[in-house]
Amino acid sequence: MASEQKPGAIVKFFERVGRSAVSGIEEVGNGGVMVAESLYWTFFGFTIKQPVRMNAVIQQMMEIGISAIPIIALLGGAISVTLAIQGIYSLRIFGAESHVTAGLAFVVVREFAPMITGILVAGRSGSALAARIGTMKINQEIDALKVMGISPIRFLVAPPLIAMMIMVPCLSIMSAVVGLFLAGVYINYDLGISLSAYWDQVVEILKVEDILQGLGKSAVYAIEIAVIGVVNGAGVSGGAEGVGKATTRSVVQAISAIIVTAMVIVILSTF
């Protein structure tokens, strides 16, 4: 009897895996279509008198960007100071603590500022986007838009996508500047290197490519956060509980996507 049940369980397991894989691929496909459609409406919407509304984009930029400045500055600063402390501690073993600035500048500008910013925006705005679109779907507001002849992609997806693509890189720059400054203050206190000398070192070490790499990553994270939020929100079913699940799922997926993307970009750019 048990041997008869075993193949059934295995088949069910592979069925589940297969279904999850297909659903994952479908979500990636939906995300790609949404990005493409958003870009279409952004650049060509005005040709058919259906532009993406600038006031909606600005409103999203305020929500995603301006409101997030304090928390991103705080966390960017905290991470950078922590990195400075750990860097000095590690390099002191080799008597090379005065070289901490080099490692710090690279890692903050290329990795940590974009990553911390991405993670915070995913938690604040990606989840809010998933919840908003999920609630709108359940309340038939998305159907209402369609029947009114208003593209939900143009009305709901393009504004936050554009806003994120502008604001996440801006927030990353801000996070990097605040982080490097606060780390400089700590280095000044611990190693006695003056702030101006520290800053000269930072400017000398960093190249345009390093800054561009940080900005490029931020833009990729922004797209990931927006698309994951929208795809999860649009897939909501089952009422308020479904909205809650979609919100949690979007945060987990966005943070995972950001960290994996960071690793992939580092591997590709290093080799």
Binding site: I48, Q50, T135, M136, N139, Q140, E141, D143, A144, K146, V147, M148, G149
Partner: peptide, 22 residues
């Protein structure tokens, strides 16, 4: 797509829950 959008402008819908934008 454009003709479809044009057609939809001639349709009005009152959904069960209202579907007003909150």
């Amino acid at each position: 797509t454009q003709e479809f959008t044009g057609l939809r402008k001639k349709l009005g819908v009152a959904f069960q829950g209202g579907a007003l934008f909150s």
